[in-house]
Amino acid sequence: MLVGYMRVSKADGSQSTDLQRDSLLAAGVLPAQLYEEHASGKKDDRPELLACLKGLRTGDTLLVWKLDRLGRDLRHLVNTVHDLTEAGIGLRVLTGQGASIDTTTSSGKLVFGIFAALAEFERELISERTLAGLASARARGRNGGRPYKMTPAKLRLAIASMGKKDTKVGELCRELGITRQTLYRHVSPTGTLRPDGEKLIEKNRNTHR
């Protein structure tokens, strides 16, 4: 069965899903199998996406108009597609930069494999740079701010580290100079952002605009 997911960022009616709907219907998705979301892609709480993913079954294929309709960021996207693949569910992207992605085909799986490799590469770079920065700060007698305070740099390292099975939370907290409570308030055990983490990233982004 083909299932379609549509999303626009604003819920005030100023954006329309008409183009996405037409494309998904033309690709063979039945109207009853369309899920429509009005929410920012950065939000964790996207009820229509959660309902869509929950309703998918082995052998189904999820269709999206563009890749950015589905994922918050590259890491979230890779994790979502990994979960779909593990459940025997395909993904097709109809247009945009990800139009060659169709995990029901060998070539489509290869393309997404490149995306996954880039995400892993990005996480490793963030981890290396942050560790180097923390080591440099310690060598100069600085601890990177007040004890127990989460910073954007520490948060990036926490995100990268928490997604790895061999990460020891106690050692990570000591390396970052934060408590477990602070860590888990910002990042989940799987490395996804929690509300406090989202706020910190957004505040940092606004500061550097």
Rank of each mutant, 00 (worst) to 15 (best):
T80R: 00
L131Q: 02
T105M: 14
G141A: 07
D60M: 07
S100R: 15
L183F: 04
G113E: 07
R185T: 06
L172R: 08
V187Y: 00
A27H: 12
A153V: 00
G41V: 08
P147W: 09
V3A: 04
T61Q: 13
R140E: 11
G133M: 13
S16H: 14
L50M: 09
R140S: 11
G13S: 09
R46F: 14
S107Q: 10
D166Y: 00
D44M: 01
F115W: 09
N204L: 03
C173M: 04
T192N: 13
L63I: 07
H186M: 03
G133Q: 12
L2Y: 04
L183K: 08
L176V: 10
K154Y: 09
A132M: 14
R21N: 08
I126T: 15
T190W: 05
L56V: 02
L84G: 05
Y5I: 03
S107P: 00
G55I: 05
V93I: 15
T58D: 15
L25S: 05
V29A: 07
R185K: 11
T95A: 15
L118D: 04
R57Q: 14
G163R: 10
E36Y: 00
E128G: 01
A32V: 04
L183Q: 04
R205A: 13
K10M: 13
P195E: 10
L70G: 02
E120Q: 13
